[in-house]
Structures are given as structure tokens and as C-alpha cells.
Design a protein around this nucleic acid. Structure first.
Lengths: 200, 200, 200, 200
DNA sequence: GATGAATGAGTATTCATTCAT
DNA sequence: AATGAATGAATACTCATTCAT
């Protein structure tokens, strides 16, 4: 029997994944507060009452959305690792951001806006989780700057990711994807301008 | 008679202002969605039912919070105008941001987080209003860069304000005010590095 | 001094009358339940808080609207009394109803719809008052039929006024003033068909 | 297995019907404006929050009440159709009205008073719906008069139904069921007096 | 496990009425 | 008397969560 986990289990896992994907998308578009369980259930084509077999609370679903974003991020960075030059990795990352400009202009950065929203809650909940996802990106970026031999790679990572968050927010607030394009170009220039191993 | 407008009128205007200030603060801390009218009423020490005498809907109160932020912003920039050098104005602005680092680390930039939240709503409401407030700051910054004789002053404004939004978001997500301090220092360096009227 | 009651009193009386007229109109259009004190105050151009110096409660205002309709009715019947023939009086009454067909098609008979609405309330309030106003019309009609020498003048009055109420309601429900015209013509025919003092 | 649709489904449908019946009754007694969702929920023995599972808004419930009246009306007319003679059908209809005299004296005609109330609202809502229900009765009555070979069957229908609405309103306003009895008798006489196929 | 239905706490909003001046 | 403002009770509606089958 090749169906070692049972078709039910496979369906269940698929349904769980469908819910996570739906949660990530819907929460990105509507925000966590304005998203109802029913919204997500509907987007995932899962009956409302059934959602609770996969996620005990709404917060669990939001955490799942966050995890889904983390997964996407890891997929992205692992693909970037295939590039030899850390500078190229960073530049390709920026190009990826720019290519998502329309989504950013409409809904902002998925992780950033979610982190901002969750940080409004009383301490000790999902806010820390959101911080962790953002730190994933920061850590990765820091590693690239370190490989490039830059001093203060953590600060550079903050600058890069901060610039991304900032330009996403402005593109969103101004509803203008062009902000992404032009600020993205500036980021690329900046990355190019960094010396090749300044400390020797 | 100094009480030319009647003490009631004065009280009424004061109460309205109290509600606006309270709305700005509470919404900054809790976000618009998680803030109830009762929260604001309580913070302003106004009976709940009475709030509606001053603001017809909750959205009106959120708009008032936004307007309050705009007012604060205009107060700030008008004070900055007293400085002769546009570069000094910009640097003082950045220093102001850094001085607010604890608030930013806890709740993010008031205008930025609010704009992000409002942009999650279906079009045609307060999102445009939020964009307008952010543009106030962008416009002012653009003017400073132009006075400095910089090329592409609008893009520079986007970079500056974007950096502020980004570092606020990261400081908030990481719950680390130090992000503000260090990224703020980098911004100051950047402002200093700009040539004095490069176009001649 | 001709201003024996004081200009204030005259103004007060005028204001009271303005409130009654406004109440009668607005309640006719919106119904008693959907009419707010503020609606009436606004229509009468009286500050909201001031209304309570003239009418202690909302119910008092509704009663005033009713009284206003009674006044109008008495004005009408007293004008009809100038006609010598009771049959002519009744026919002129019907013609008056038809001439109001557009108002009836839009809002029904003022007294009838108000009576219907007030009868939904728990006993012992304004419902009896509404009944009294309608009875004014019934009594007057009964007198005319009696003068005409008709048997069962009260039943004839009920038939006539009932027909008016019914055709107003149908014209209103169908939003068709023509109902008033055609049913009014039938009523006129019916009045004409009544024998001249059948009992001798 | 007789429980082919599942007991839940049966219960749900039953509950929905219970809510419709309760809505029809309570709205008849209290009027639409004075009826709260809680009133209907209580009358139907359904928890308030659950009502919204079956009807999204209060207006939907009022529409349901209207539909319930329409259903009752169709039940009635279909029973009347079993009589061979259209004149008998009409007379039996009138007798049915008279038999309901106590209810009419207390609360008026369910459809008529509801139509009157709904017509006070700003256009484009339930008022048209109410008109449609009344038209059902008018259409049926018109058909009977036509079968009787009467000229102007529509006008006769308006007269008959108008008389019913009028006498219900007067019985209600005067709180006197006797009005129904005596005016009903007059209607029966009138129906009897109509010639048997006057046009040929 | 799956599902429609149930539950109840929470929230914005309205409005008659009262109050302070 | 006049008036803007205050008050609080009511009410429609939402939604996370739970239940029964």
C-alpha cells in the first residue's frame, strides 16, 4: 500500500495548506482584524465549521499566514543562494521586490503590514511571531553583507530591509507602484556602490 | 468681557480637541480596528453617547486622529522653518524622529501604521486621507532638498521619508528603539554627504 | 398698549403653531416612529432643545400633529357647511379628497395612516386620540346623511369614510393617484344615486 | 428511512418557518418600526444571534412577514377557487374578513397596515414589496369580477379591497369589531346586487 | 473527521429627554 | 424662555467559537 498515510490524511494536509495559503492572501489584502474566519474558509473552499479542526483559534490562522510568508521567504532566499555573488543575491532580491510593485502599491508588504498590525495588540501574542519572520529576512541579508566583507552588516541589513518596508508603505499610501521602481533603482545603485571588501 | 464666545463654546471646542487628541493617541496605540468609540470616549473623559455630538461616525473620529497628526506635523515643520539651512532642517527632523524612538519601538510611526491599516479597507474611504497626510511630509521634504539644490528632490524625499517609515516599522517589529538611533545616525550621515548645490 | 399679551407671547404662540404644522407634515410623510424630534424642530426652524418648552414629550408632539389635522378637518367641514345641500357637501368633500390624490398616493391619508400606526402601540395612549379625530369626520358625515333623510346614516358614514381610507391606502400602496380619481368618481355616483329623503 | 433530509435540515426549515410566522404576527401587532429583532426571536423561541443565520437584516424579516401574509393569502384564494361561482367566492372572502373582525379591530388588516407603514420609508425598499402583496389580492378579485361578466373588473376589485381596507382601518381606529360586521353585510348586499353578466 | 447550525459577547449608532447657562 | 450640549438606554448587527449529528 503506497498510501501509507491514508488518503484522508493527505486530503487533510492539503486542506490545511489551502487554509494557510488562503489565510496569507486574504490577511494580506484585508488585514488581520478585518478578515473573518468565514472569509478565509470561503477563499480556501472549506466549510466554516471545519476550519477549527485545523486551527483552534483565529490567532492560530493568523500565525499560519505568518508562517506561510516565512515559508515563501525561505523559498526565495534558498533560490537566491544559487547565485555565487552575495551582491548579486541582494540585487536580485531587490529586483524581486520591484517586480511585485503592483501588489505592494495595493496592499503593502505582506509581512510588514501584518507585523505593524499585530504590534498594536497587547503584548505577548503574535507580535513576537511577526518580528521573528522579519528577522529571518534581516538575518539573511546580514549574512550577505558579511560575505561581502562589509562592516556593520546588521546595520546594512536594517537599512536595506527598512528601505524596502518604507518604499512599500509609501507606494501603498500613495497608491503608486512607480515608487517601487524608482526607489528600487536607488537601492540597486547603492548596492553597486558598496566597495568589494573594504576592510581587506 | 474676555468670555466673548461663551464658556460653553470654549468647553465644546476644548472637548472636541480632547477627543481628537485622545483619538490620535489611542488609535496610534491600538490601531483603528481595535479601537472602540468607548476607548476614545474614556481616554477623553467624555460620555460615550456624547462623542456622537462631535463626530458622527467612528470613521470621522479616525479621520480626526489623522487630522491631528497632520496638525502636529505642520507644527513641527513650521518650527523647523525657523532654521536657515534646509540641511539643518532635515537633520533636525531626523533627530526628532530619533528622540521619539521609544514610542516608535512600541507602536510604530503614527501616520505610517495608520495609513497601512486604512489601505486594507475597500477603496474610497479614509485611505486617500491617510495618503494626503503622508504627502504633506513628502512635499515639505522635497522642498528642502530642492532648496539644497539637489537633483530629483522628490525621489530624495521618498528616500528620506521611506527610510523613516522603514526604520520605525523595524524598530517596532523588533521592539528595539536602538534601531531608530543607529539608522537615524546613518540618515544624518547621508544628509551630510549630500553636496552643497551640486548643480552649481 | 395693543401688545396686550406681549410680543414674546405672540412669538411663542406662533412658534407653537409652527411646530404643530411641522409635526403634522413631517409625521404624515415619515410616520410617527420614523420622525425624530429633531426632524420636526428642523422643519419648524426651532432649536431642538427649545421644543420641550412647547411640548413635554414626543407623544405630545404627535398628539399636536393629530390636533392639527383635526383643526384642518374642522376648517374644511365648516367651509362645506356653507353649501345648502348636504348631498353637495358630501360630494364636495369627495372632490376635495380627489384633488389631494398626489399626496395620498405618496403618503396616504394623514389621519388614517397615523391612526393605523398609533393603534400598534400598547393601549391607553394616543390611539384613542386618533380614533377621536376620525370620529369627527364620521360624525359630520353622519349628520349629512341624516339631513338627507337616509336610513342608517352612521353606516353610510362608515361606508363613505371607509371608502376614502381604503382608496387612499390602495393609491398609496400602488403608488397610483389614478386610483383616487376613479374610485372618487364611483363615490360621487353613489352619492348621486341615493334617493332624496327616501323615508319621507 | 423517512429522515431523508436529516433531522437538522428539518429543524432548520421549521425554525425558519417559525421565525416567519412569528415575524408576521408580531409585526402585525406592533408594527414594523416598534418590533425589535429580539421580539421576534422571543416569539419564535430562537436565540437572538441565531436569527441572523436565517435572515440577514431586520428588513429581510419584515419582507418575510410580508411573504408569510402572501402565502396565507394564496392559501385562502386557492381554497376559494374550489367554489364554482365567482360571486360565492367573493362573498366567502368577505365572510372570512368579517370572521376576523376582532383581530382587525385590534390591529387592522395585516397587509394593509404594513403597506401603509412601509410606504413612509424613503423609496426603493420594502414598499414595493408590500404593494405587490396587495396586488395579489386585487388581481384575484379582478379575475372573479371578470368571470362574473362585470365591466371594469379592476375598478370593482379596487372598490372591494378598498372597502375591506377602509372598514378594517375604521374598526381598528374605533376599536369596534361591529364595524366589520355591518360593513361586511353591506358588501355582501352589494355583491348580490351585481347583475349576472350584464354585458351579455 | 465533516458540517450546518447555535450561541453570546461585543460594538457602532440613534434619539428622547434633560441640563447648564 | 432659549439653547447648545449631555446623557444613557435601546437596538441592529457581527463574528469567534462551540455544538450536535
Amino acid at each position: 500500500m503506497t498510501d501509507s498515510m491514508g488518503s484522508r490524511a493527505r486530503t487533510a494536509a492539503a486542506k490545511r495548506q489551502r487554509l494557510m495559503t488562503a489565510a496569507a492572501q486574504v490577511v494580506h489584502r484585508q488585514g488581520a482584524e478585518r478578515t473573518t474566519i468565514a472569509d478565509i474558509a470561503h477563499a480556501a473552499d472549506v466549510p466554516v465549521g471545519n476550519v477549527y479542526y485545523y486551527f483552534k483559534t483565529k490567532d492560530d490562522l493568523v500565525a499560519a499566514a505568518l508562517a506561510e510568508h516565512a515559508r515563501q521567504l525561505e523559498l526565495l532566499t534558498s533560490r537566491l543562494e544559487e547565485l555565487d555573488d552575495p551582491r548579486e543575491r541582494l540585487k536580485t532580491l531587490v529586483e524581486g521586490w520591484v517586480s511585485q510593485r503592483d501588489l505592494a502599491a495595493r496592499y503593502g508588504c505582506p509581512t510588514g503590514t501584518l507585523a505593524a498590525e499585530l504590534d498594536k495588540r497587547p503584548e505577548g501574542g503574535l507580535d513576537a511571531e511577526a518580528g521573528r519572520v522579519i528577522r529571518l529576512l534581516l538575518d539573511w541579508a546580514e549574512r550577505q553583507f558579511r560575505e561581502l566583507g562589509q562592516p556593520d552588516p546588521w546595520d546594512l541589513a536594517l537599512t536595506l530591509v527598512g528601505a524596502y518596508q518604507g518604499m512599500s508603505l509609501l507606494a501603498n499610501a500613495l497608491r503608486d507602484p512607480d515608487v517601487m521602481t524608482r526607489q528600487g533603482a536607488r537601492l540597486l545603485d547603492w548596492l553597486d556602490s558598496l566597495p568589494e571588501a573594504p576592510a581587506g
